[in-house]
Design a protein around this nucleic acid. Structure first.
Lengths: 226, 226
DNA sequence: ACCAATTTTACAAAACCATGACAACTAAAC
DNA sequence: GTTTAGTTGTCATGGTTTTGTAAAATTGGT
């Protein structure tokens, strides 16, 4: 079942939410402040995050935009207090997927959670399957096959393919590859990106010298031809 | 000021919305059912549409998806009744840009309207889409296609096209090309501009010798024929 | 220590761009 | 209508930047 991370500083609310969701069959994780919540989100990659807006130090907005900056796709639902109307707009600007207003009923929260999970699940499933000519790629399972024969791709190669596929035909810069695939801490040369592209082409293209799928965009990076 | 079309079957709500928005300085148009609302939307091309979901005959969802089918980019905000929680998700699926839940406060509605208008305005100002005959150009994504076939343009060519397009049919001087596309530091020959124009014509015009789109304005520069 | 994956390095190849020469063209004066 | 001065089209060329990729070096796990 899906795992839901609850980031909420008030203990009673936190446990109430956890109990409610657990009773529904979800697995719950909790964090009592923004910072540890953020850390947990990155480490555990939950399927959904319930995020209280009003928290000391790192508030919900900050956590949310930080999550987005780290290119995480995890759906975020904000918990806002009544009267913070402007927060809603702000919240959606900051990259949240939905919000509920306290006080809310159990039914409403559950309905929203279900709806949001369904929404992102559909989106996610759409992007797991990828077909480049006779090669089929399952990004979720990290499996690629040509006919019956398995084609071996490394983790980095799958990650790069996913980014290319998500860009849907748009060029992806080398910097973006490094940010998303490698993360913000590491700084390999941009040359490294080229090497991985080369090996992807060697594995996926029937004629790697004039690639059909992975095109280079001079001065920018690469794109996946749809 | 922006024009807002209100499609709402209940008269009190309709006039209340119109009054509120008019007081804020927006120009309002109204329609009392889905069908006439759709017609009005197509004829008047408002800047935003407030659309009640619950209406007899053609309901909000139907209007919305019909609008999208007719390739309209106009932002749509749905008005949904409380308890129709599922509607929210469905509404966004159907192509709406936002929604509010009845009952809502004036402040909330106005905040949303402002936010949505701001959002689409920013997107529109970017001037990304361009169509020259059978060639479609997305300046933001740096993608150009003729039918399904990609048309390869270089970075300079995209930059020059953007300038031409932003000038909206007005001639653009060579000096301005150099200033904007090359920047104020670099000073290539004005001849260079011609070369890039030539390659743009070679790629975009069906008969580059008598160009349909990129006209030269003798003694001045070039312009994009709208 | 071994092996696979990853990163760096280095050099060759390709793409892109600027230039200048000259032909073709335009506009206006004659 | 011709002439002429100025403007634009286009080509070949060479320089610069960017990319391809093989091979060597490094990393990390078992």
């Amino acid at each position: 079942m899906e795992r839901i991370l609850i980031i909420e500083d008030e203990a009673p609310m936190r446990t109430a939410l956890a109990d409610l969701l657990t009773a529904e069959g979800y697995r719950t994780l909790t964090a009592a402040d923004g910072e540890s919540g953020l850390k947990r989100a990155l480490a555990e990659k939950p399927d959904l995050i319930l995020l209280d807006v009003m928290m000391p130090k790192l508030d919900g907005f900050a956590v949310c935009s930080e999550l987005r900056r780290l290119a995480h796709e995890v759906p975020v639902m904000l918990l806002t207090a009544k009267g913070q109307i402007e927060d809603r707009v702000h919240g959606l600007d900051v990259g949240a997927d939905d919000y509920v207003i306290k006080p809310f009923s159990s039914e409403e929260l559950l309905a929203r959670v279900r709806a949001l999970l369904r929404r992102v699940e559909r989106k996610a499933r759409a992007l797991t399957q990828l077909k480049l000519g006779e090669i089929e790629i399952d990004l979720a399972r990290q499996i690629a096959t040509r006919g019956r024969q398995p084609v071996h791709l490394t983790a980095k190669e799958f990650a790069m393919l996913r980014l290319l596929a998500e860009a849907a035909g748009e060029p992806v810069s080398r910097e973006r590859f490094l940010d998303v695939v490698w993360g913000y801490g590491a700084f390999p040369t941009t040359r490294t990106v080229d090497n991985h592209i080369a090996s992807l082409r060697a594995k996926l293209e029937s004629d790697p010298d004039s690639p059909r799928w992975i095109k280079t965009v001079h001065g920018v990076g690469y794109k996946l031809e749809p």
